[in-house]
Simulated assay, not measured.
Amino acid sequence: MQMTRKVVETRDGLPFLISGSGTLGWDQVAANLVEPGENVLVLQTGYFGAGFADCIKVYGGKPKVLKAPYGSHIGLEEIEVALRTKKYKAITITHVDTSTGVLSDVKAIAATVRRTSPDTLVVVDGVCSVGSEELKMDAWRLDVVTTASQKGLGVPPGLCILVASPRAIEVFEARKTPVTTYFASWGKWMPVMRAYDNKTAAYFATPPVNLIRAYHASLSEITKLSPSLDERYRIHKQVSRRVKALADQLGLSLVPKDTAYAANGMTAIYLPDGLVASDVVPRMASKGITIAAGLGDAKDKYIRIGHMGTSVVDAERGDIDRIAKSLQASLNEAKNAKKAVVEETP
Rank of each mutant, 00 (worst) to 15 (best):
V96L: 02
R11T: 13
S21K: 11
K57W: 07
F52T: 11
G294L: 05
K338Q: 10
F52I: 01
P15E: 08
K199M: 09
T147V: 11
V179C: 13
V155L: 06
Q249P: 00
M308W: 04
V42T: 13
V163R: 05
D125T: 08
S286C: 10
S286F: 07
N32A: 07
A245Q: 15
V29D: 02
G22L: 04
G296P: 02
K339E: 12
S19R: 14
T181F: 01
G25R: 07
L41A: 13
A110F: 04
V102F: 06
F204K: 01
V179S: 02
E80M: 08
L159P: 05
A247S: 15
M1G: 14
K87D: 12
L331W: 10
G20R: 06
S278D: 07
V127T: 11
A285C: 02
V123R: 03
L254N: 04
E316W: 01
D125Y: 01
E316K: 14
T290S: 07
Q2L: 13
A337D: 12
G25W: 04
A324R: 12
C55P: 04
P118C: 04
C55S: 12
A262I: 05
V144N: 02
S228A: 12
G288C: 09
K244Y: 06
P15R: 04
A268I: 02
A90S: 14
N332Q: 15
L33M: 10
A111W: 02
Y88R: 08
V58Y: 07
T177C: 00
D105V: 08
L229E: 07
D321K: 15
K188T: 01
G158L: 02
T267W: 01
V209M: 09
L142E: 06
T310Q: 06
G13C: 12
G101F: 07
V122R: 01
L83A: 10
L159K: 09
I79M: 14
V127Q: 06
P63S: 10
A298I: 00
N332R: 13
A168D: 08
T116I: 11
V7G: 03
A174G: 12
P63F: 11
P178S: 04
M266W: 03
L153Y: 01
M308N: 12
A260F: 03
